[in-house]
Design a protein around this nucleic acid. Structure first.
Lengths: 208, 208
DNA sequence: AATTCCGGAGAACAGTTGTTAACTGGATGA
DNA sequence: TCATCCAGTTAACAACTGTTCTCCGGAATT
């Protein structure tokens, strides 16, 4: 199915990816709204004008980064939420997944946390849209759970949003403790696990 | 007690406040890391160099804005959490307080949400510190509640952080619905109320 | 083999930025 | 009254920004 790209398109995608990577690196110490187009091209080693061959503006590049950071995460979350027998196991798996992802893709996580409420409207919108999809997918998985019997669609979506937000809080905390000693990271893991456990308990008794 | 300031110091504080106000306005459409010093002075109508009489840099100004936005909020939260007879009343009062504050100080709320994970380290640190104080104060109030009997200090602080984070989620949602029709704002209020209610239920059954 | 296509380079544009130094004039305190 | 102080001004610096237009050379197409 996958068609072999011509030399030309392959080179184009290569520089495009180089621009995305360079931008992601530069964004570790600043926000997207202060990221300059020349700054990015300088980091890659191409002429400033080459930028326009790939993106209309840095805001446009930001939207592409949102896709890269969150687009491939949907199946992971699906599997994590779905393939668990108990609530406790679901929590453990979720925390482990998040911790692992923060360790392997810290720049992506930082970018999302930073730009979710950042100064670039199209990027905020793109993130909002992706998180909305996550919430909807979590809701669908929760609906399959026998424990969700008697729950309204509205309440299920409410709980799903609570879980998604809590995932971001968790990711952000892991990110801050990334340079800290191992024991501090373990402390964070214990904290967020108990928080999700408390939410899970609230879910159990919601219909009382 | 309050000493009447001389003409000189009064004028100085006046321009200082004008700089803070102008910056806060400009930050509605961008992040602090892209805010220029000249941009701020131009908006106020003073020479660029006058900026240095008040702040070392825009990052310094950002830290001052954190104080202004969060410093005066401590007694409000204290009163809201303390002066409630039931959990349900506490939730209602908290949601009303947040909604009111978002309507009266939207720029402050936006600034905090934006810069909490923003690109300026000293500002992130200042916000972190203030939120830590909030969590500690909420913990102290929760500790007084008879329902907290049997809770460990650690678990109380865990719950306090959960509440503080949920307050920010709530404020952010209200902020996004600020331009939306009244019915949408009511929908948001219902959503966040149910989320806090679920957390509150989790608290009730934590020791089971 | 000849032609078109197109990602990238180069140069130049006006406009912006942070920071320095030296200066002004009214409030302040002796 | 006179000297001091100091918030704000003016001018100038090199360095940077986004954007336009023109051009090049190799890949793609015919």
């Amino acid at each position: 199915m996958s068609h072999t790209l011509g030399i030309r398109q392959a080179q184009k995608q290569k520089t495009r990816q180089a621009l995305l990577d360079a931008a992601l690196g530069l964004l570790e110490e600043q926000s997207l709204s202060s990221l300059g187009l020349r700054e990015v091209t300088r980091a890659v080693g191409v002429a400033p004008t080459a930028f326009y061959r790939h993106f209309r503006s840095t805001a446009d590049l930001g939207v592409a980064l949102v896709e890269e950071a969150l687009g491939s995460l949907h199946p992971m979350i699906q599997n994590t939420v779905a393939g668990a027998r108990s609530s406790e196991e679901r929590i453990t798996r979720a925390v482990e997944l998040i911790a692992h992802h923060v360790h392997t893709q810290p720049a992506h996580v930082r970018f999302i946390a930073r730009e979710r409420h950042g100064g670039v409207q199209p990027v905020r919108e793109a993130i909002r849209s992706q998180l909305g999809r996550f919430a909807e997918e979590v809701r669908a998985e929760l609906a399959k759970d026998p424990e969700s019997a008697g729950w309204s669609e509205d309440d299920l979506l409410m709980l799903a949003h609570l879980f998604v937000d809590q995932m971001l809080v968790t990711a952000s905390l892991f990110l801050e403790s990334l340079e800290a000693p191992e024991e501090e990271q373990e402390r964070v893991a214990q904290l967020v696990t108990r928080q999700m456990r408390l939410i899970s308990i609230g879910r159990h008794h919601w219909l009382d």
